[in-house]
Structures are given as structure tokens and as C-alpha cells.
Design a binder for these strands. Structure first.
Length: 544
RNA sequence: UGCUCAAUGGUGUAAUGGUAGCACUACAGAUUCUGGUUCUGUCUGUCUGGGUUCGAGUCCUGGUUGAGCAACCA
């Protein structure tokens, strides 16, 4: 069969063009730059697959870099979980870097900017600075400190770093253009003072910390990143990214990179991931966790990597999903159904099936001898005997799903009904319902049926066709279990687009807890599809 | 009413000036020891006006619509 060539996404096209033109001497280096202030979610995974995927495909390297420039929000605890999640997804990074590794170099660079008259210390309040920034349609106005003498800027900035200036009292700003139509050029803040929180790695060594715009591009540059791939909202930052790098590369090269004056990293942007019936905002997720609206970051309803893992998603399925949705510059919304389709596809051929009854009603097989039991053998996965079999105890009294019996059924219903069609008990005998018993309220308590002793699965007599096959569990050998059936977290397609409090949009039925009977025990963390009901994943022992 | 980016079936994505294709969803039929799976089929698309060209989803131009940008966040 001829293999259909998969078309390249636009980033891959750029990379191949760069490769063909010998840009950066044909070197490919990417980075995944999470901020260690929360858990990785499926939106990050899209970026991870891009960053690591490009490096893998073009024989380059992808490094992990923690963007830890804001000690107020960041913590080491997140570093570990981020590393764990990336490893679980199956990606291998080259080096682990931290933006904080470059604090000294960035500081030196800031000093250079000051000496070149490209930066100044502003001592206005945040409000004043914001006010002077102008609006997208009106130019900003210059700060009264904009033309401070270089020596004074130098002295003040050094004083800021020595901890002599109170947090919030001064910032270092790039002196660019207060009237630029790109707001990011209106003298962006390069450094702010943070003394209230120690940094998770550098402790109290620094009292000034670089802003994203002054740290990210430089970090890329110091590391030798060639393709700095990020999401679309950074598109307007790109000119500033380029501006800062221009100041010390090319004709202004001052030896800060082993790759020489011609090397430069280039930022490229792709569309971020949105999925229906969920949210992709760290802030909102944190709120759900903190307020106990979900059971934690790894609640199976959460779009976090650890949540998906507990939900039973495999790394391969998640990566396949990313392949399917692709990378463009169109901001859209992916149907949650596609994600679910991908995991079903993945588990279909690999995950052993099990019988479990969630809404049990007793079935008595009236012509099966009292006290008799037998052991039947079922394939773990139908049609794949090589993937193993399991034993199921069979007897006169079974649990079946309440919904599999209807006292009065029309022709459309082809499961159990008195005098109705023959029905196959999964991997077992063929039965026919004869009647039922009800309590005082009219609820069915027992279903009666007769079985055909010659119809056992796998035997000659069992080859007869039935329209329906139902699940069952033998009453005496069944184990009790708790099943938590999860549905979409939100009741509306796009919670972020709705007015009002997003918490009011949660799906009240996103978690249904059922006590079940189940035949076997399964190790935690294994996907465990229950025929007819759906895919389940055995979880850690429940604790309340 | 500034700057940047985008616009292909319901959704996502391909076609790189030369037959608008694929996947998901929905629906229909067949198959089936899960009303699952599988298979087959159907529905539905180039935002809009002009231009360039033998030929435009693709290039140019005007418009429309949507998104992002005014944190001492990243």
C-alpha cells in the first residue's frame, strides 16, 4: 500500500525552509518554557508536542526551561510535577535550564542598556505608568524620569538590586518609543523590584527580577535556541523580542553567544488549544481546586495532564490527538468528542474488558439447577484470544443492568422482555425472559428467565445468533466496588465565552458515583473498559 | 476606531497558481457474542466586492467578521 505523505504544518515548513537555506548553520534547537506556577494541562501538551516534536523530527534538541522570573508566583513543587508529566508523555529533553540561571547575564545586559542610554529608572507608581502608556488609539506620554542622566540611572538601578529601594517604588524601563502603535514598545518595563518573596532557586540573592520580555528572548539567545515557538498571543511581542536581541547580536555582537554574530533565535506563533466543555485557564483551574469544586488537580474531569492520566488516557492517545488537530494560526475550538474518539481508538485494541453492573437487578434462571455453578472463560478482548482470557463464575442468580429488561417492550427494544427475543449473556448462555417480580411500589426486584443449556459460547449450540448481548455478574461471587462515572466538566460548550461566573456553568452530573458489583480486581491506573457502559480506569483507593 | 494576526462543510485540518481532499460529528444501510466495533453510503465548504492570470481557496486591492495587544504576569 502506498503511504500517503502527511503534509507539513506551517512551522515545519518554516523549519525546512531554514534548513534548506542553512540558517543558523542547519542547527535546530527548541525549548519548552513552562512557568513553574501550576500544573501542566492539555493546552501545554500541544506546545510540548510541537517543541519536542520539531526537535525530534529534525534531529535537533529540545531543552526544558523553567521561566522562573517571578518569585511571587513560582515554586519548586511545580518543577517536579512538570518534569514528571513531560516524561510521562514520553518526551526526552536535552538540558534542564532555568531563566534564573541567567539573572547575572541579564543584569549585566541591563547595565549595558543603561550605559548606552537605552534604559532608565522610573520612580512613578504603576498607576501613573499605566496612565502614561496611552491607549491603543492614543500615543503615550513620556515619563518625567525618561531623560535622567546615565550615571544616575546606573546608580539607582544598582541601588535597586542592593535592596535599598522599596518594592514597587522604582522600575527599569527600556527607552524606546512612547508613541509606537505597538503598545509593547512604549518604554516597556525591563526590571521590577521584588523583595517580599524569596526566589525558589536563588533565594535572596536578587532584589530585582527581569520581566518576561527582557528575559525570554535573551534566554533563548544564551541557550542557542533557533526556533522559539509559542502561542499566538505573543505575536505582538515578537518585534520587542527582536528589538532586544538586535541590541547585542549582528553588528552589535558582543560575544554573548558561542554561535557568533549571525546567530539568532526566531519566534514563531501557533494557535493555542481550546476544547469544548472545559476551561484552559490556570487561574480557573486553580479556583476549581481550591474551592473543592473538583477533587484536585488530578481530578479525572480536569484537563490537566495528571487528570487525563487518572481518567485513563494514554500518552499515545494524547499525542495522536495533537497530531489530528494540527497547528495553524486559526483560533478555534476543538470538539471534545475528538479527544474521546482518540482514546477509544487507542484502548479498543489494547485494554482488557470486564463485566460490571452499575444499576443491578437480580436475574434468576429458573431452569438452572439450584446450588450449581460453573466457570466460564471469556476473552479479555473479543477477537484477540492471544491477549489472554479470564474466568467468570456462572450460576443460577445473576446481576444484570436494570436497563437491560423492559416489562413491556416494543419491537425496537431487543434486550430482555417477557416472551421477547432470545438474548445472549456475554460469553455465556442464551436466555429468554419469562417474567418479573415487583415490590409494593411497582419497582422490579427480580427478573425471571430460562436458559438453553446447549447454547454456551464457543460450542456448537452457541453459534445461534441473537440480536442482543448483555453483561452479567454472578451474585455470590460478585465483588462490591465503587464506580465514579465522569462526564464533561461544564454544561456549556464554551464556558469562557459566557457572561457571569464560570462556576455556575459546571455540569452538575459530571460525577456520578455508583456502587457496583464487579468480578475481578484491577491494578490502579489501568484503563478498564466496561462493556456497554464505557471506559473506566481503576483509581487509587478512595479516601474521604 | 491604532497596531498585529486570521477567515475552506457543524468542528478541525489539507490542497504551496492547475480535479476542493481527509478526519471527527450527524444521518442512513450492512455486519456483529457489547444498540460497541467494523464496513459502505449521504448531508454539508473556499466570508465579500473588484483586479492579475489561459486558469485563483491560493497572488494584489477594498470591505466584512473574529481574535490578540493598554500587568511592576508569563
Amino acid at each position: 500500500m502506498e503511504e500517503q505523505e502527511k503534509s507539513l504544518n506551517f512551522i515545519e515548513q518554516i523549519v525546512e525552509k531554514d534548513l534548506a537555506e542553512g540558517v543558523n548553520n542547519g542547527r535546530i534547537q527548541t525549548r519548552f518554557p513552562p512557568e513553574p506556577n501550576g500544573y501542566l494541562h492539555i493546552g501545554h501538551v500541544k506546545a510540548i508536542c510541537m517543541d519536542f516534536g520539531i526537535a525530534e523530527k529534525y534531529h535537533g534538541v529540545c531543552n526544558l526551561r523553567f521561566d522562573d522570573t517571578n518569585p511571587v508566583k513560582e515554586d519548586t513543587e511545580y518543577v517536579d510535577t512538570i518534569e514528571r508529566d513531560i516524561a510521562w508523555l514520553g518526551f526526552k529533553w536535552g538540558q534542564i535550564y532555568y531563566a534564573s540561571d541567567y539573572f547575572q547575564q541579564l543584569y549585566d545586559l541591563a547595565i549595558m542598556f543603561i550605559k548606552q542610554g537605552k534604559a532608565y529608572v522610573d520612580e512613578q507608581t504603576a498607576e501613573q505608568i499605566a496612565e502614561q502608556k496611552g491607549t491603543p488609539t492614543e500615543p503615550g506620554v513620556a515619563s518625567p524620569y525618561r531623560d535622567r542622566p546615565i550615571e544616575e540611572n546606573l546608580r539607582l538601578f544598582e541601588s535597586m538590586q542592593r535592596g535599598e529601594i522599596e518594592e514597587g517604588k522604582m522600575v527599569l524601563r527600556a527607552k524606546i518609543d512612547m508613541a509606537n502603535p505597538n503598545m509593547h514598545f512604549r518604554d516597556p518595563i525591563m526590571y521590577r523590584i521584588i523583595t517580599s518573596h524569596p526566589h525558589h532557586r536563588t533565594g535572596r540573592k536578587w532584589n530585582v527580577y527581569p520581566m518576561y520580555d527582557f528575559a525570554h528572548g535573551q534566554s533563548d539567545y544564551f541557550e542557542g535556541v533557533t526556533h522559539s515557538i509559542c502561542t499566538l498571543e505573543f505575536e505582538v511581542h515578537r518585534p520587542l523580542y527582536d528589538y532586544f536581541i538586535d541590541q547585542f547580536s549582528g553588528p552589535n555582537f558582543c560575544g554573548l553567544s558561542p554561535y557568533g554574530p549571525d546567530y539568532r533565535p526566531k519566534q514563531r506563533e501557533f494557535n493555542r488549544l481550546n476544547i469544548t466543555y472545559t476551561v484552559m485557564s490556570k487561574r480557573k483551574m486553580l479556583q476549581l481546586v481550591k474551592e473543592g469544586l473538583v477533587a484536585g488537580w488530578d481530578d479525572p474531569r480536569m484537563p490537566t495532564v495528571c487528570g487525563l492520566r487518572r481518567r485513563g488516557y494514554t500518552p499515545q492517545a494524547i499525542r495522536t490527538f495533537m497530531d489530528k488537530i494540527g497547528y495553524t494560526k486559526v483560533e478555534g475550538m476543538i470538539d471534545q468528542g475528538l479527544l474521546e474518539h482518540t482514546i477509544r481508538e487507542d484502548l479498543k485494541e489494547t485494554a482488557p474488558r470486564v463485566c460490571a453492573i452499575f444499576d443491578p437487578v437480580k436475574l434468576v434462571i429458573t431452569n438452572y439447577p439450584e446450588n450449581q455453578t460453573e466457570t466460564l472463560v471469556a476473552e479479555n478482548i473479543d477477537g484477540h484470544p492471544e491477549l489472554g482470557t479470564r474466568e467468570m463464575k456462572f450460576g443460577r442468580e445473576l446481576w444484570i443492568e436494570r436497563g437491560d429488561f423492559l416489562e413491556e417492550a416494543d419491537n425496537k427494544f431487543y434486550r430482555l422482555s417477557p416472551g421477547g427475543r432470545e438474548v445472549r449473556l456475554k460469553s455465556s448462555y442464551i436466555i429468554q425472559a419469562t417474567g418479573c417480580e415487583k415490590d409494593a411500589n411497582g419497582n422490579i426486584t427480580t427478573v425471571y428467565a430460562t436458559y438453553d443449556p446447549d447454547s454456551k459460547s464457543g460450542t456448537e449450540g452457541g453459534n445461534r445468533k441473537t440480536k442482543a448481548t448483555i453483561n452479567w455478574v454472578e451474585c455470590n461471587s460478585a465483588l462490591d466496588a465503587e464506580a465514579r462515572l465522569y462526564d464533561r466538566l461544564f454544561a456549556v460548550e464554551n464556558p469562557s465565552a459566557e457572561e457571569g461566573d464560570f462556576r455556575d456553568l459546571l455540569n452538575p452530573d459530571s460525577l456520578i458515583v455508583k456502587c457496583t458489583s464487579d468480578g475481578e480486581r484491577y491494578p490502579a491506573g489501568e484503563p478498564l473498559p466496561v462493556a456497554q457502559t464505557g471506559l473506566l480506569c481503576s483509581g487509587p483507593r478512595h479516601h474521604r
